[in-house]
Write a protein that binds this DNA or RNA. Structure first.
Lengths: 290, 290
DNA sequence: CGGGCAGTTGAATCCAATCAAAGCCTGTGG
DNA sequence: CCACAGGCTTTGATTGGATTCAACTGCCCG
């Protein structure tokens, strides 16, 4: 129970694996809400539930540190529907967010109406490990699937971190990892062609999911919409569609029913020019990278 | 002398302003060196000199913290020629680098020969505030102009930071700022057209230079090559050329002799969809943003 | 004077965006 | 149970922005 695993994959909660997709994009009660200010005001968490994935952060910390953070993350949780904003650009951040279930995306909207997804947060990820440094969010975070998020009070967190330097270092690690991913995305969008770009995104997501025990070596969930993939890669929706078909035709991926299968991981990674070292955070090995 | 200014612009070393360009791109002794492993091995700093810009970091710290860091940064310095690698991808980082003079660029090279510049480091910037977290550089840092860099031993730094929590927080700030810029670049490359992209880059550089007292309200140095601009924006060199001409034609910029003049800052920023808040690091005001 | 590099220009090509419309699947409501 | 709506996917036709290839200028420097 105590999440005292150390670096390697926590395959423990394997049960949680299929949870992601129970109701993918059920356009649900609230219809196509964009940039909604929702966000449970002090105690207004909508559902409480206790399942969820262990925080990846915990791979970097152990013992009392880990338990405290884990407990803090599960103390107050909220559920979000697809497309719902968890925090919006300009909001004063109250909580740090830990993904317990589902996928989130980070995005920035432009005055011309377009938006760029700048990253995804998967189960076990901390979204905004630097909240206590800022007064206003400089980007938005939204749910991609149905998601459960742990809300960690920024002051209590700051407090805890003051008392636990290892926790602080773990946050720094998470922060570094995010920067590293951001950089790689920029390289992708700036220098890679459409096929490579898509392949690269899929490789990254697969590897990250595998790292938290949510993927098989040759497959994983893929709840993303083609238009979300487009917003993440800087392509148009139709071109994403056509490019995916190319990848299918080349037998590099099998993608249906929101499930991604990878017949030949090595081939896909080669096509993507995917070098997993940017996910290694400097000195940790990432599982599943040959 | 003690760099105890607080947030606002240090216009003190105004003398340093023109230094940037004395020998811009003097292809110098060492010719077109790419990804060179150079890097002074323990004590091999080539030139010692004592001038340079105050570290921007110091805007977030004061007193003894500031002095210590500043001293540490100037204790051992090295000069680099344009295009020379300061650290290369894969290198085990020994030092943290502080820019004292000149411009650096961060880049990642791809197997297909292309490369993406992921950011610039200007005088006063810390390049790699997270060195002590990693065993291998996940990207390279090179000099763009002639540059003087302070080399800060990672262990001594880590030591110092352990004893000075405010310093640690300042590093976290720098780290956050870099992430924020990285994100904005991704938005740029992913969603903005060529004109906006270039305009945006110019706006960012101008504002950042102004923040360290190296720019006038309507002009700044621009030592970047068109091909470097291309690598930073994900465009081709020729297209950068043509796009710059468009900007000139629209009277948004005047760019010659490695100097950028901005006749109408408001207009340029509008054309770029430039919102300076991403450089504000959450709660600090950035000077010169109207 | 020649070499190298940055900048410029033109022509041809291509990758990707845009416009438009149809097919599909799912949930909803009569 | 069927009709309908809405969101996602797919396809075709067209446009356009950006790349590529190539050549030429001007400049600094040896």
């Amino acid at each position: 129970m105590a999440n005292a695993f150390n670096g390697k994959v926590p395959d423990a909660l394997g049960e949680g694996r299929q949870l992601l997709l129970e109701r993918p994009h059920a356009s649900a009660c609230r219809s196509a809400i964009r940039r909604q200010r929702h966000f449970s005001p002090a105690g207004g968490a909508r559902h409480m539930n206790s399942f969820g994935e262990p925080l990846r952060l915990l791979g970097w910390i152990t013992g009392a540190d880990a338990e405290q953070l884990d407990q803090l993350a599960r103390e107050r949780v909220a559920d979000f529907a697809p497309r719902e904003d968890i925090v919006s650009e300009g909001d004063p951040p109250q909580f740090m967010h830990a993904v317990l279930r589902g996928w989130l995306c980070h995005y920035k909207a432009l005055p011309n109406g377009r938006r760029q997804i700048t990253g995804f947060s998967l189960p076990g990820d901390i979204c905004d490990e630097r909240v206590f440094l800022i007064r206003q969010m400089d980007h938005s975070i939204a749910a991609v699937t149905n998601a459960t998020v742990g809300l960690i009070d920024r002051h209590r967190l700051q407090d805890l971190m003051g008392r636990r330097p290892r926790l602080q270092q773990a946050m720094a690690r998470q922060s570094y990892l995010r920067l590293s991913m951001q950089r790689e995305w920029l390289v992708s969008v700036g220098q890679r062609g459409a096929i490579e770009r898509l392949a690269h995104l899929l490789c990254e997501l697969h590897l990250r999911l595998e790292a938290v025990g949510q993927a098989e070596p040759d497959s994983c969930e893929m709840p993303l919409t083609q238009s979300e993939i487009a917003e993440a890669t800087g392509l148009s929706t139709v071109h994403v569609n056509r490019t995916l078909q190319e990848l299918r035709a080349a037998n590099l991926i099998v993608l249906r029913d929101r499930t991604l299968q990878i017949p030949d991981l090595r081939a896909l990674r080669e096509a993507a020019m995917f070098d997993p070292s940017y996910l290694r955070c400097g000195d940790k090995d990432v599982p599943g990278n040959g």
